[in-house]
């Protein structure tokens, strides 16, 4: 092995350790029992692995974990499907002004959500879905449309127009072409948007804390923050809770991450 390779491997290895540190802290402290977890020994491995922290954290977080799941799946699916339709129109059925409309739509991806928070809350109250998971699903779908549209549009742009033309020559309409021709080709784009939306929505905090005030109905990120903010809860439980709250997105990344990376690498999120 050359010296250059050695340095390369050393740098990568060192970076890996740095990147793993927070995950290391939360995992090992999650496995400690209440009596042995302390700030002074936070870097040390537990003497004996204990599942007590996980059991306690699970008891406190599992209802919220369920809320998150029940919310994130329809929200990610719906916003992806709408994004696919929009992306199809913006890439293959352009009309005068469609680019301007696309830019106007895309703007929604970049706004700080604080600027719509108060009207949003009042609007949801007005249509009687405030404080409910369907209300939160609606919120995530609406504010997810811009980025899913962007991803699908960027994907469809690279599909040759001749395919669409061939289908229309065969007499297929716009909708039929989408169903029969485009959708079957869209799996990679769906992988990217679904993963992207799944993580974004799962990890959301702002909408969760403002749209759903009832602790029983809140998503897991808010429950975890409450857990860590209450002084009476032991640290091992908080750390175990962090692991539990992180697990679904972590699993998605470990399992399907390569599709996402591929999508990202091929320029999925570029205006």
């Amino acid at each position: 092995m050359s010296l250059k390779r050695g340095i390369l491997w050393f740098t990568l290895g060192f970076a890996l350790i740095l990147y793993a540190l927070p995950v290391y802290v939360m995992t090992i402290n999650g496995f400690k029992d209440a009596s042995s977890v302390s700030l002074a020994t936070m870097w040390q491995l537990p003497g004996r692995a204990s599942l007590g922290g996980f059991a306690e954290a699970w008891a406190m977080l599992s209802p919220n974990l369920r809320n998150s799941l029940v919310m994130v799946i329809p929200a990610a699916l719906l916003s992806s499907i709408i994004g696919a339709l929009n992306g199809y129109v913006f890439s293959k059925w352009r009309f005068r002004g469609s680019e301007v409309l696309f830019a106007l739509l895309l703007f929604g991806f970049f706004i700080p959500y604080q600027a719509i928070l108060l009207p949003l809350v009042r609007f949801l109250q007005w249509i009687s879905v405030y404080g409910t998971l369907p209300g939160l699903v609606l919120t995530h779908v609406v504010y997810g449309i811009s980025v899913t549209t962007l991803i699908f549009r960027n994907f469809y742009v690279n599909i040759p127009g001749s395919i669409v033309e061939a289908a229309t020559v065969d007499g297929a309409g716009m909708v039929e072409t989408f169903w029969r021709v485009m959708l079957p080709l869209s799996l990679p784009a769906f992988a990217v948007t679904l993963i992207f939306q799944f993580t974004n929505i799962w990890n959301d905090f702002l909408f969760g804390i403002t749209v759903v005030p009832n602790p029983r109905a809140q998503p897991v990120t808010i429950a975890l923050n409450n857990l860590s903010g209450s002084f009476s809860v032991d640290w091992n439980v908080v750390m175990a809770g962090a692991v539990i709250a992180a697990l679904p997105t972590a699993v998605v990344y470990i399992g399907l991450g390569k599709f996402f990376v591929r999508g990202l690498v091929s320029g999925a999120i570029k205006a």
Binding site: A15, A20, N203, D204, F205, A245, A246
Partner: peptide, 14 residues
């Protein structure tokens, strides 16, 4: 590549 991208999957709260 996956290891360095992994933190992106976690929430800021976690």
């Amino acid at each position: 590549r996956s290891a360095f991208l992994f933190p992106y999957a976690l929430s800021f709260i976690v």
